[in-house]
């Protein structure tokens, strides 16, 4: 077990340094912060609102920002390994495939967490201007991190499907978009047309990340929401493993 942790750490360290060895990390962080700033202050009307809360002006944009940025950060995870052939090197090392999958996923998640952590000045500003409920802000950050992790796991899965990063990106955007829109009335209405059973419609709607994220934005730390996000991550990473095994089996 110790060696498993050590292997995951080694792989995560390499992957993380890979982000910073190229301009990817810096471009990503700068774009992310610019967009967060723009949506929070210009579109979200942070100042005009006159309330010391981050829920509406700040966190509400995250599912949409992540929709494009997280697949961009995750699209190379496995497709690059396959394209360059390093996957052969990695998987003939004395490690199990899941150690590699978890290691690479964690590295990207840590990277996204780092980008998210750089938005802390917004929190400081809010605290300077008023007296926000920092508990709510904290759960908001937890939710945002979970959301990023879920999208990332999906990107991890799509990047294992193809060695083409563009295809990997588009597939993961589509799946993440579905996760956002699953509970949206137009989508549920469409499902009602095709299916008589309200159960199915409810089941699909339950897959929406929005309902689970909203709870956390409002400061409700519900285990079910956390379990939901962790389940998406677990399922996606498991599927990644199955896909990689499938490629190897030919």
């Amino acid at each position: 077990m110790n060696s498993a942790v050590a292997n995951i750490k080694t792989i995560a360290k390499r992957e993380l340094s890979g982000y910073f060895a190229s301009p990817v990390a810096y471009v990503f962080i700068v774009i992310f912060l610019l967009l967060v700033g723009f949506f929070t202050f210009m579109v979200g009307g942070f100042f005009e609102r006159g309330e010391a809360s981050l829920t509406l002006p700040f966190f509400v944009w995250h599912p949409w920002l992540y929709l494009f940025l997280v697949p961009a950060a995750g699209m190379r995870l496995w497709s690059e390994e396959r394209r360059s052939g390093t996957i052969e090197l990695l998987l003939t090392m004395p490690i199990t495939p899941w150690q590699a999958i978890v290691g690479k996923f964690l590295a990207s998640w840590i990277f996204l967490a780092l980008a998210l952590a750089l938005t802390v000045p917004v929190v400081i500003t809010t605290n300077y201007l008023g007296n926000p409920d920092n508990g709510v802000i904290f759960t908001g950050y937890i939710g945002s991190l979970m959301l990023a992790g879920s999208y990332l796991a999906v990107s991890c899965m799509t990047s294992a499907i193809t060695r083409n990063q563009v295809i990997s990106f588009i597939l993961s955007v589509v799946i993440c978009l579905f996760l956002i829109l699953a509970g949206w009335p137009p989508v549920t209405r469409m499902l009602e047309i095709f299916s008589e059973s309200p159960r199915l419609v409810e089941a699909v709607a339950a897959f929406s990340v929005m309902t689970h994220f909203e709870g956390l934005q409002r400061g409700v730390l519900d285990t079910r929401d956390i379990v939901f996000f962790l389940a998406i991550i677990g399922f996606s990473l498991f599927t990644t493993g199955v896909i990689i095994r499938g490629h190897r089996a030919g």
């Binding site: 050590a6 080694t10 052939g85 390093t86 090197l89 090392m93 004395p94």
Partner: peptide, 20 residues
């Protein structure tokens, strides 16, 4: 194949770490 974003020493160190 080799990880192109690493230095030679970094790459060899990485594989050494995976070898424990």
């Amino acid at each position: 194949p080799a990880y192109t974003d690493m230095t030679v020493a970094g790459f060899l160190g990485f594989t050494a770490e995976l070898r424990g």
